[in-house]
């Protein structure tokens, strides 16, 4: 009872990356709180889901397996999660800040009247004293996230309502297998007890999904292009550099909005989070929303005409100058130095 709970997204018998990341985070929270880690997977054809989930240190996995439950629709998944939470009374519940998690999360939180914080960038356990009510709380979940267009960082707590719910974007937490042979308990839910026919009123008639072609998340080197790159032509130079260094090109939102780069490559709060060995920020000012997606890179190089650009504050190397001059030189001298 009062465990940490993770809602796992599944499609085609595979658990989503973000859910694995949350299981890892959930495991460490559960360790700290001295409770169990539970998970729920809702979908169809879930026979192999246990082996993808237990190694992250899951103690109890609940599955709801029914052809009608995949692809995701709001109402049946809500009904299952709400009833399961009423039965198991978790203290913390985590979901991906994906199109599924951000559709399901608020509905569940409304049904249970429990607070939900969207898009957390960090989750920490801590205490709280409510001086007015003269109450002291221990072991609350600090839900930390940028707010107000990223100009402030807010720590949100839910002192009195349970579960404390939070969504987290893919890539923000790191996934890590606890033990390939970790033994957890599998509980198969009797779906008929959890959903009703009225839950299936929204009908999916067509779907066009595309697996992402670019893999900037896994790239060891990411060349980030910003508005300062100035043109599509100069952006091509970044692709050249990426190719030479064996990396991928990413972009700030301003560069994506300018049409120089696909949205798929946007890095930051509303894009992907990357942690490469090297991030080269080209003509990027470094607003907090962008930094949120790259500041954990092992090394950062900033190329910027403005010596005081905010990004320079988190850079290991600051090159003050024009992207169009510096990038060709990098290509040239890299080639010379590896010959």
């Amino acid at each position: 009872m009062n465990n940490v709970f993770v809602y796992c997204e599944v499609e085609g018998g595979k658990i989503a990356e973000v859910s694995q990341e949350l299981l890892t985070k959930g495991r460490s929270l559960a360790d700290e709180l001295n409770c169990k880690l539970e998970a729920v997977a809702i979908g169809s054809g879930l026979d192999n889901i246990g082996q993808q989930v237990f190694p992250y240190g899951v103690d109890v996995l609940h599955t709801a397996d029914d052809p009608r439950l995949e692809p995701f629709t709001t109402l049946p998944h809500t009904s299952i999660v709400v009833k399961l939470f009423e039965e198991t009374k978790p203290q913390i519940a985590l979901m991906g800040a994906t199109s599924i998690g951000r559709d399901l999360g608020p509905r569940v939180s409304s049904a249970l009247h429990s607070g939900l914080t969207a898009d957390c960038t960090s989750l920490v356990i801590g205490g709280h004293e409510d001086k007015k009510a003269k109450k002291v709380y221990e072991d609350l979940l600090y839900q930390i996230r940028p707010a107000f267009g990223g100009n402030i960082i807010a720590t949100i707590i839910n002192p009195d309502c349970r579960p404390q719910m939070a969504t987290v974007r893919e890539g923000v937490m790191k996934k890590e297998i606890r033990d390939v042979a970790y033994e957890g308990e599998l509980v198969k839910l009797d779906v008929a007890n959890y959903v009703s026919d009225e839950d299936f009123v929204v009908e999916i008639i067509e779907r066009h999904l595309e697996a992402s072609k670019v893999n900037i998340k896994g790239a060891p080197v990411v060349i980030g292009g910003g508005y300062g790159v100035g043109s599509k032509e100069t952006f091509d130079l970044l692709h050249e550099l990426a190719e030479v260094l064996g990396g991928e090109v990413g972009a700030s939102r301003a560069a994506v909005d300018a049409g120089w780069c696909d949205h798929e490559r946007q890095i930051g709060q509303t894009g992907v989070t990357v942690r490469p060995k090297l991030y080269i920020a080209c003509g990027i000012s470094g607003q907090v929303q962008h930094r949120a997606g790259m500041e954990e890179s092992a090394q950062i190089i900033s190329i910027n005409t403005d010596p005081d650009a905010p990004i320079n504050a988190i850079a290991d190397y600051v090159i003050t100058g024009d992207v169009a001059t510096v990038v060709p030189k990098m290509i040239k001298f890299y080639k010379q130095n590896t010959k």
Partner: peptide, 19 residues
């Protein structure tokens, strides 16, 4: 149910970058 415990301004601590 949600309360704001703390609000922090975003401040950057400059690293010792190589210029």
């Amino acid at each position: 149910p949600t309360k704001v415990k703390k609000i922090e301004n975003v401040v950057l601590q400059a690293k010792d970058a190589k210029k």
